[in-house]
Amino acid sequence: MPPPVNRSPAAPDIVGLGEAMVLVQPVGGAPLDACAMASVHVAGAELNLLAAAARAGARAAFCSRVGADPFGRRVLAAATALDVDTDLVATADDFPTGVFFKEVRPDGARRVHYYRAGSAASTMDEGDADRALAATPRLVAVSGLTAALGEGPERAVVRLARQAHARGVAVALDPNLRPGLRPVGETLVGLLPYTAYLVLGRDEAPALFGTDDPAEVFALARAAGVGEVVLKAGADGCFYATDDGPVHLPTAAVRVVDPVGAGDAFAGAYLAARLAGIDTRGAAWLGSQFAAGVVATPGDNEGLPDAARARALVSSAGSAASRR
């Protein structure tokens, strides 16, 4: 057994390691090459996850690097507004903050254009992992997306997962596979023995396990050493873990405007609920509620429930769990 970690009462519940970028999106669905106006947001998988976790009642902190530029300041301000602590975000003088652009095509498909090569976050390394661990969180959240940013970020993800596990800190892994970036499937498979919570999309499961069948995925993941699995299935809802195997929970979404960020919101709410002692069914239900709000609005995290609504949802998830 690892030695107990001495934690400050103010220590974060969750630290997420990743990249946040500024998102520019045409207003009114116009194409990028013809739009006259655009809206500006801040987004990034780990930051989205942490925002949802914070809204669900967890103390959340972001570990990253941003440039010493207006976009970096915007990322820090947006994270703070989302109640995500930014003390673990380093500022790099020689590298810019990443940006990306998103447009909605006439057929409804989303097209995303990234300008993240050479960004400050792409220079992360093992030191960033050590900084995250020094905050003594209860859980660290990592993703394949971060590992795919470069060799340094990949080393940071591996070190954070391994060292957290060695210290008795729970590890949550979301593969977040991006075909346009470096392949990291083999690295992620190597992290499974250190993973307490595996939150993955059903479409990503074949890359790790060779199948998307929920029962087979759950069995293979647990055989690899994973503590708990939840399978996100988009419009088909999700599958969560029970002692009797996976159970399907239909989606809570009734209106879909922009699906980007929904999986991150699900994961953040799910993890916050599990840390609060809510069972897997209640946690999956809460994640689905958060995800439904995000898909109903443009932007990656604008659709999160407000504080009062979030408290009511968490209470409902916990009350339902206590009645079983």
Rank of each mutant, 00 (worst) to 15 (best):
P26G: 04
A81E: 08
E126R: 05
A132P: 10
D94N: 10
L32M: 09
P70K: 02
A90V: 04
D69L: 07
S122W: 12
R105N: 12
A43T: 00
V22L: 06
E126M: 09
D94G: 07
A51C: 08
Q25F: 03
F100R: 08
F95M: 08
L76S: 04
A58F: 13
H41S: 08
D130K: 01
P106T: 14
L76Y: 11
T91M: 09
M124W: 01
R116P: 04
A38K: 04
E19G: 04
S64F: 02
K102G: 03
D130N: 05
A129K: 05
A77C: 00
G67Q: 02
L82P: 02
P96Q: 11
T86L: 05
V27L: 10
A68K: 06
A52M: 08
D128C: 12
A45F: 09
E103P: 13
M21F: 00
M21V: 00
T80M: 05
A109E: 15
L49M: 14
L49R: 14
P70L: 13
V99C: 12
A51P: 04
R59G: 06
P96R: 05
G28K: 07
G67T: 03
E103C: 13
L82N: 13
T80I: 01
T97A: 03
C35H: 02
R74D: 00
A20W: 00
F95D: 00
